Simulated assay, not measured.
Amino acid sequence: MATTSTVNAESRRERLLAILEADGIIRLEEAAEGLGVSAMTVRRDLADLESDGQLRRVRGGAVPSLRPRSFLERMSTGAAAKLVIAEKALALVPEVGAAAFDASSTVGTLLSRLDGASDLTLATNSWENFQVARHQPGISALLVGGEAEERTDSFVGLLACQAASSLHYAKFFTSSAAADSARGTSEVTLAETQVKLAFAEASDETVLLLDSSKLGQRALARSLDWDRIDALVTELDPGDERLDPYRDLTDVI
């Protein structure tokens, strides 16, 4: 009997992690119903997964753990939400001039949906995002180099910040590890925030592309205050009440 219980627990946790990868969030009541167990059982499973560093519990469920993750790992999490965000943001990408795109996977999804431009210079500190952009018609892609941050597959450090600041951008497209209405956005490493700040300071406008599971959260290093963010794009309907705390801070799309 003990062996069966252990197998069932392992199976549940695998399914919970699969939900997290697909949706970017685990909703407690939905997960319990889908697994055919009590909410208390799911809470215990989430507690065990959190202790293993595989997720982070929040009110009503769990979200991905706030730790440096590879581009591939981030890209495979919450793919459906990323696609909705990308479709909304497509109309915001300029056809000409210069625009900056950070090393986030949500921005990578946006880049993968672009259908070219007229004459756009595009700068990014992500090798993966650079590879996508360089094959787009009408786009001259620039890779902002510097120190390779192996944990996040991005370029950071002094040289990256200097390169990011060397152009004047019409818009900067960015995501973040977390964001709340009081403290703005935050990241899992200080080095990531420094490059994002450099891009934002060199841009006329900053567009934040954010999976709603990250709203109301805080990560290690403070990044952009709301007065630096001109628009917030999520997968939610703009009228969703979860966006209420942000309506007076920025345009909600």
Rank of each mutant, 00 (worst) to 15 (best):
G34W: 03
R134W: 07
A2D: 14
L159K: 12
G78R: 01
L224H: 06
L197F: 02
E150N: 08
S65V: 10
I253L: 15
A221L: 04
K196W: 04
L197Y: 01
E14V: 05
L208S: 00
I19K: 07
S186C: 02
A160Y: 01
R59C: 05
L49P: 10
P137N: 13
D23N: 06
K214C: 00
R56Y: 02
L66K: 04
D45Q: 09
A191N: 06
L55C: 05
V7H: 09
R242K: 15
G61S: 11
D204N: 12
T193L: 03
V84C: 09
G36Q: 09
A202W: 03
E73K: 10
E10W: 14
L236H: 07
E50L: 04
D244V: 12
A198S: 03
A191Y: 05
G97T: 03
T77M: 07
A177K: 05
K171Q: 14
Q131M: 14
Q162G: 07
T185P: 08
V144E: 07
A221F: 06
L159N: 11
G97K: 03
E205F: 11
K88N: 01
K88W: 00
V42P: 01
D225Q: 15
S11N: 13
H168G: 08
H135T: 14
A123S: 12
G157F: 11
D180S: 08
V42S: 01
L122T: 02
Q54R: 15
D119T: 06
D237I: 04
Q136I: 07
A177D: 13
E149H: 08
E235M: 07
F199V: 10
A62P: 06
A47V: 03
E128P: 13
P68S: 03
S154G: 14
S11K: 14
A47W: 01
D211R: 04
D230C: 07
S11W: 13
T121P: 06
R43Y: 03
D240A: 13
L210G: 04
Q217T: 07
R247W: 09
L90Q: 11
S175G: 13
A18T: 08
P68V: 02
R218E: 14
L20Y: 08
A103M: 04
L72W: 00
L114F: 05
G60N: 09
L49H: 10
R113S: 11
F130V: 13
H168V: 10
E235W: 05
F173D: 00
K88Y: 02
I85R: 09
G239E: 12
E241C: 04
A123M: 08
G157Y: 08
V7I: 13
R218W: 15
D48I: 08
R228V: 05
Q54S: 09
